[in-house]
Structure formats: C-alpha cells, structure tokens
Simulated assay, not measured.
Amino acid sequence: MSEVDSAVVLADLVAEGEELDALVSGQDWGAPTPAVGWTIGHQIAHLAAADANVVTAVRTPGAFDPVAHDADLDAAEGAAQPQAELLARWRAGRADVVAALREIPQDQGFPWFGAEVTTQLMAPLRLMETWAHGQDVFDALGVKRNPTARLKHVAFLGVTGRTLSFYAAGLPIPSEPLRVELTGPDGETWAWGPESAVQRIRGSALDWCLRVTHRRARAETDLTAVGDDADKWIDLARVFL
C-alpha cells in the first residue's frame, strides 16, 4: 500500500461523504435502490454502522467484535430510525472516523474483520464503500454523477484486489504480470503494473470502479482485455468478499 498517502485519502473521504450528504439531504429515504430490499435509508444506515465499527476498532480495539454482523439486519435497524436521527448519526460517525484515523500512525495496525488493518488501508476502504453505496443512491434518484479524481483510490483498491478476486473464485492466482491502464475523469492515464506486461486491461477509470464494486456488469462497461488472465480478471474483479 505504499502508493497511499493517508492524509490525501482522508481529505478525499470527507469530500466523498459531503457529496453524498448533499444528495440525500431533503430526499425521501424510503425510495428503493438497486440493492434488493434496500432503500436509501438502508444505504445510509449501512455506512453509519461501518463507521461506528471503525471508530471502535481504532479507539477501543479490545471492544471490537471481529465477527461480522448481518449487514441486512443492521441496515434495516438503522433505516427504521427517524430520518433526521439517522442523518445526524451518519454525519457524526463520518467525522469520528476521520478523526480516529488521523490520531494514529498510518502504519499502526488495528483489528478488523478477518485481519488486522492500518489507516493506510482503511482510509481508501471507507472511501470506496462510501462511493459504492453512494452510487446506489445516485442510481435510485436518477441523478447523473460526475466522476472525480477521488476515483483513483477506488481504482487502486481494485488493482490490488487481483489476488482477492481469483482467491474468492477458487482459482489459481495468475503468475504472469498484468497491467491496468485507465483513463481518469480529466483524460489522464492511471496505470499499474509493468509496461512490458503482455496481459492488459484498459478502459475508463469510472467503469473499472463500477465493475470492481459490482455496481455494473461487465457488459455495461467499456473495459477491454488482452490475455486470458486479464480477461478473466474483469469477470472476477472485486474489492470485498
């Protein structure tokens, strides 16, 4: 994770939360989203619950429960709160996460589900989840979302998730080098992997991020591949189990 500057990611995490906050404020949170059974309220409640877990893990690691709760149940319980109360809880939790992650060295470990993590990893993970669930809300409301340079953090997690993608599918991890070349929102190129790699994935950064967070099917993206492993990776790509 040496490419991650936690101070930059945390600032972008704040901006990501503010963008979603501006979108949902004043909206009916009972509207359904693309996630089956989840309303806008469920999406916000899920983010609020995850934020609370991060704060506990960082500040009182001994009290952190490493057994993942039922996400649907937590989201339903939160969505049942009055909208104003849930909004206030989510706002406070977002601020607490950023403050907690700034309090510790970026390479200091703390417990998480399945493994110990650091600020260097958790900061982009929180941004990725905020962005992904935010996409569900944008889609639910039929609002066009303008991509930003913050996508680079999500794209990077997608690239580093190659091993996870093949492991989760029960397939061997490719040994041949792979290169990912993405076009960012401003037309710049974001690239990972050796230039000499034969196996490649190309496309827009937005479509890569939508794919690795499972917000779009492969056929809905402009992603292309050269090589069997690269082609298979697009099908399997993920950033979470």
Rank of each mutant, 00 (worst) to 15 (best):
D51T: 09
W29P: 09
V14R: 14
H46C: 03
A219H: 11
D235V: 06
A132F: 03
V159P: 07
L171K: 13
L157E: 08
D51C: 13
A88K: 08
S25K: 03
A197E: 12
D229W: 15
P172A: 12
W29N: 06
P174F: 14
V97T: 08
G170C: 07
A57C: 06
G41F: 03
I173S: 06
V98Q: 01
G114T: 05
M1R: 09
W38H: 05
P34T: 04
E77I: 09
P111C: 12
V14T: 08
Q135L: 01
G78F: 06
A76F: 05
L87T: 11
A22C: 02
W208R: 04
F166S: 08
L125Q: 13
L182W: 04
L236P: 10
E103T: 11
V24G: 01
V159C: 02
D96A: 15
R216N: 02
S6M: 11
E188I: 03
A68V: 07
S6V: 15
T183F: 06
S204Y: 04
K144T: 11
F113C: 10
L241M: 10
V8C: 13
F64Q: 06
D28H: 08
L101V: 04
E220H: 05
V54W: 13
G227M: 13
R126M: 10
V137R: 04
G109W: 07
N146F: 00
Q106S: 14
P111M: 10
I173M: 12
S204E: 04
D136H: 00
R91G: 00
L86G: 11
P61V: 09
L178P: 07
V54Q: 11
P177L: 06
T118S: 14
M122Y: 04
W208G: 04
S196G: 11
Q106P: 12
A45S: 11
D139E: 08
S204D: 03
S175V: 14
L20M: 00
T39C: 09
Q43K: 05
T213M: 05
E129F: 05
F110S: 02
L125P: 03
V143H: 03
E18M: 07
G142N: 07
E77Y: 08
G187C: 12
G193S: 13
G193H: 00
E16I: 01
D107G: 12
R238E: 06
R145V: 03
R215S: 03
S175A: 15
W131F: 15
F138A: 01
K232C: 09
V67K: 02
F138S: 00
D72S: 08
G114C: 03
D72H: 05
V198I: 15
Q135F: 04
T213R: 00
P111I: 08
R238K: 11
A88D: 14
P61H: 13
P185L: 05
I173V: 15
V67G: 03
F113N: 00
L86E: 09
C209A: 13
V154R: 00
H46S: 04
V239F: 01
T183V: 14
Q135S: 04
D231T: 02
V226Q: 14
L101M: 02
W233F: 11
I104E: 09
T160E: 01
G187R: 07
A49F: 15
R179P: 09
G142S: 04
T221G: 00
H133V: 00
A76M: 02
L210C: 07
P194A: 15
A123F: 00
G193T: 06
S2A: 13
A217M: 12
V137P: 01
S175R: 13
P194F: 12
A149Q: 12
L210S: 05
V117D: 07
P194V: 14
